[in-house]
Design a protein around this nucleic acid. Structure first.
Length: 413
DNA sequence: AGGTTAAGCGCG
DNA sequence: AAAGCGCGCTTAACCT
């Protein structure tokens, strides 16, 4: 790593060499099986119709389920359901979190939740993606944008292939429609816990460095430290809490936010955080140092010198200042991860171009690369890909890449 | 008719 | 009073 990273270096080492990689992705694109999506669309239509009927019965009238105005009137006026939360403009909120809460006591919110989830799936993915298949290439070609994000990540649009569903079973059917060409498989390679590894690198916290160097399950290790138990005695619930703490730290979350996330009281959440900082003092120092350095310099930067300027870091408005502080905490980690995968993309691309291999990078999803790989090249590509991604940067902790293979994108995970 | 904003939600 | 970072897309509601 350069002793004094510079913005010029980021531009010359990362951004310019990435250009041909991205144009190549545009030329390759992803194959999508539209008959699978068509089938799913039919099923969704049927289910959405049932749910709409159920909702109308529970409401005692017909209404547009997608209309916040009509929905609000029915839930909070007609049915007299209490308003738990309001939107920025003062209207009663009907977002998922609220409906989940209300679903415990009332039948309609539950129906709305399922309807909303499936409607989103259908309109954004199932029905939309087939219309985006290029008639000449038979593939979907997204646009990757190299500039525009605050942290140095790419973004993807028209269509956005960086938010294809994965968390629900119904959603994964969309992912199953992303398929490999005949004779090929899809290979998905993703960095394991890259932002937490970068946090370990930046903070140089001994326990965190040790945990990663030993190849430990980081959430389990955190749980063991925070809850004072042996790693093999960590419960599911303790690991879940530790995971929330770890992610919360990356985002600069407060005790209030952690409490809400875990459904515990604020005092308890504050104790968790305090205990965490006792066990990982380097992380606490890092958080404080980055706040101070941001306030002094007016910017933060990644390991490679990519800067993010934070004009509100010294704002007199406390809320704005705190928001800038959270960004100051998150941006070096998110941004360094973005730099690393960009370097990996350049290296992988050059390696493939300068070989006889015909495998291609076809997608990037922040910490994941997806390649279309002929079966004859499978072993060589998997090995090379993993090696190049893991050696894209040398941090104080190892970078680890998990690789999956399948006939479709879901299987490859 | 066409653009913009707000709310909501998909992903890392 | 707010309270967790970064994106893009869809619909409704509002505006010109």
């Amino acid at each position: 790593m350069a002793a004094e990273p510079t913005l010029k270096k980021v531009f010359e080492d990362i951004e310019l060499p990435l250009v041909p990689v991205l144009s190549r992705i545009e030329r390759t694109g992803a194959l999508v099986d539209d008959t699978l999506l068509f089938q799913q669309s039919q099923e969704l239509s049927a289910r959405l119709g049932e749910l709409e009927t159920e909702a109308w019965e529970l409401a005692g009238q017909q209404f547009n389920l997608a209309s916040p105005k009509q929905l609000g009137q029915i839930l909070f006026e007609k049915l007299q359901i209490p308003v738990l939360k309001k939107t920025a403009k003062g209207a009663p909120s009907t977002k998922e979190e609220v409906l989940q809460e209300l679903a415990l006591d009332y039948p309609l919110p539950k129906v709305l939740l399922e309807h909303r989830g499936l409607a989103k799936l259908k309109s954004t993915y199932t029905d939309k993606l087939p219309t985006m298949i290029n008639s000449v290439t038979g593939r979907i070609h997204t646009s990757y944008h190299q500039s525009g994000t605050a942290t140095g990540r790419l973004s993807s649009s028209d269509p956005n292939l960086q938010n294809i569903p994965i968390r629900s079973a119904e959603g994964r059917r969309v992912r199953q429609a992303f398929i490999a060409a005949p004779g090929c498989k899809l290979v998905a390679a993703d960095y394991s816990q890259i932002e937490l590894r970068i946090m370990a690198h930046l903070s140089e916290d001994p326990s965190l460095l040790a945990a990663f160097s030993a190849g430990q399950d980081i959430h389990r290790a955190t749980a063991a430290e925070v809850f004072g138990v042996e790693t093999d005695e960590v419960t599911i619930d303790q690991r879940r809490s530790a995971k929330a703490i770890n992610f919360g730290l990356i985002y600069g979350m407060s005790a209030f936010g952690l409490a809400r996330q875990l459904g515990i009281n604020r005092k308890q959440a504050a104790e968790y955080i305090e205990l965490y900082f006792t066990r990982y003092p380097g992380v606490q120092s890092y958080m404080n140092n980055i706040r101070h350095s941001a306030a002094e310099n007016g910017f933060v930067e990644t390991v490679f010198g990519r800067r993010l300027y934070l004009p509100e870091i010294n704002a007199s408005n406390g809320m704005r200042r705190q928001a800038a502080e959270r960004t100051a905490i998150n941006a070096p980690m998110q941004g360094t991860a973005a730099d690393i995968i960009k370097l990996a993309m350049i290296n992988v691309h050059n390696w493939l171009e300068n070989s006889d291999l015909t495998s291609k990078i076809i997608m990037q999803v922040h910490d994941e690369l997806v390649l279309e790989v002929p079966e004859s090249e499978m072993d060589e590509v998997q090995k090379g890909l993993k090696g190049l991604m893991e050696s894209a940067a040398e941090l104080l902790v190892p970078l680890v890449v998990d690789i999956g293979v399948g006939d479709n994108w879901d299987e490859a995970h």
